[in-house]
């Protein structure tokens, strides 16, 4: 889509706000609607928009498929890692109270933050990877 000046300008303006909104949804998930899953999809949507306007090759220069293939399992590992950590600290699996022995509510917030980060990583990279594989075929 080289010739579409308006689309290019508008998407260039939109994409930073999309990513910012994704971060808001991610970190505000404790207080309002949203969380890692929704934020991950919004992040992926921002990059898909970039790929639709500026081409797949330009997008893959920013985030390579190899990087995504690492990020997909990494998110699950972060999530499960939090569970294993709370295990090692003497609690049940995913018992966030164990993360901070002095202030359980602080541990809860930190645990949810880490777990949501794992979800964000897996969801956004999976969505983008599926888009890459679909869009990369047929040409």
């Amino acid at each position: 889509m080289r010739g579409h000046l308006i689309l290019r300008v508008v998407s260039k303006i939109l994409i930073p706000f999309l990513l910012l909104f994704a971060l808001y949804v991610q970190f505000h998930g404790d207080f309002g609607p949203g969380g890692g899953f929704q934020a991950g999809v919004i992040v992926a949507a921002a990059f898909v928009l970039y790929a639709l306007i500026f081409g797949l090759r330009a997008t893959q220069k920013i985030i390579s498929p190899a990087l995504l293939e690492v990020a997909v399992p990494l998110g699950v590992l972060i999530y499960a890692g939090v569970g294993v950590y709370t295990w090692l600290m003497g609690g049940n699996f995913l018992d966030y109270n164990m993360i901070d022995s002095h202030d359980p509510s602080h541990g809860q917030h930190l645990g949810v933050l880490l777990v949501e980060a794992g979800v964000l990583l897996t969801v956004s990279s999976t969505m983008l990877l599926i888009f890459y594989t679909f869009a990369g075929r047929g040409r």
């Binding site: 995913l94 966030y96 809860q108 917030h109 645990g111 949810v112």
Partner: peptide, 24 residues
Amino acid sequence: ETTIPNVVTSVLATYRGYDTLGET
């Protein structure tokens, strides 16, 4: 118990954290 104001998030990530791990 959790001091997380959004109950949906606390159910999703804390009480039912195991299920969300499965979803991921």
